[in-house]
Simulated assay, not measured.
Amino acid sequence: MTSSDTVSARLQFDAAIAAATTAEAAFGALQELARQIVGAKLFTVMEVDMEAEVARRSYTSDPESYPASGTKPIRYDRWFDIVHKERQLFVANTIEDISTVFPDYELIDSLGCQSVVNLPVVLAGELVGTVNMLDVEHHYAPERVEAIKREISIPAKLALLIAQRA
């Protein structure tokens, strides 16, 4: 992606997020930004309630396979340590690596996704959610991971804030 493409993607996100009045619109703008900047065959947003120890999928690009409904219990594992405790991106670039932390790895694989990045979203010192991008094997190479940190992290915070307000 050229710097001109990145600027264009940022400007499109800015216009879309400024007009967003619903969580769906805010997360849709974020999804489009992620698609343009790093690519994502599957894009979801999970919101976290640590008091209740549950996570809720609040946005999905594939409502048939991953509906935005219900909650699931927080699992305390290696993924939790990386994303929740250390507040670092979780990156896995093969389905084998994904299978060590996600019990639904077969569904993920069936969707043509063998790599994942989970971006923690922290507001006011609290982890409030994750932005999850999945694509083909080895898609999230170091340069794409850096682009996520540089180009998606702050917009993700804004999208979550708008979603919480909507």
Results as ranks from 00 to 15, higher is better:
residue 1 M to N: 05
residue 1 M to F: 07
residue 5 D to L: 06
residue 5 D to A: 13
residue 6 T to A: 07
residue 11 L to H: 10
residue 13 F to I: 06
residue 22 T to F: 02
residue 23 A to R: 12
residue 26 A to Q: 05
residue 29 A to K: 02
residue 32 E to V: 09
residue 38 V to E: 03
residue 40 A to V: 04
residue 41 K to G: 06
residue 44 T to R: 10
residue 44 T to L: 13
residue 46 M to C: 08
residue 47 E to D: 10
residue 48 V to D: 06
residue 49 D to Q: 12
residue 50 M to E: 14
residue 54 V to K: 12
residue 60 T to P: 01
residue 67 P to W: 09
residue 70 G to R: 12
residue 72 K to A: 12
residue 74 I to Y: 06
residue 76 Y to H: 15
residue 80 F to E: 08
residue 81 D to E: 15
residue 83 V to C: 04
residue 87 R to S: 08
residue 87 R to N: 08
residue 91 V to I: 15
residue 92 A to V: 09
residue 93 N to I: 11
residue 94 T to H: 10
residue 94 T to P: 07
residue 94 T to A: 10
residue 100 T to M: 11
residue 100 T to E: 12
residue 102 F to N: 12
residue 104 D to R: 13
residue 104 D to A: 14
residue 106 E to I: 07
residue 107 L to P: 02
residue 110 S to Y: 08
residue 113 C to M: 11
residue 116 V to K: 04
residue 116 V to N: 01
residue 116 V to F: 03
residue 117 V to H: 01
residue 118 N to W: 00
residue 120 P to S: 09
residue 120 P to E: 05
residue 121 V to F: 08
residue 123 L to G: 07
residue 127 L to A: 09
residue 127 L to P: 05
residue 139 H to N: 08
residue 143 E to P: 01
residue 146 E to F: 11
residue 147 A to L: 13
residue 148 I to D: 01
residue 149 K to V: 03
residue 150 R to S: 08
residue 152 I to W: 00
residue 152 I to N: 00
residue 153 S to F: 00
residue 155 P to C: 07
residue 158 L to I: 11
residue 159 A to M: 07
residue 161 L to F: 03
residue 164 Q to T: 03
residue 165 R to T: 11
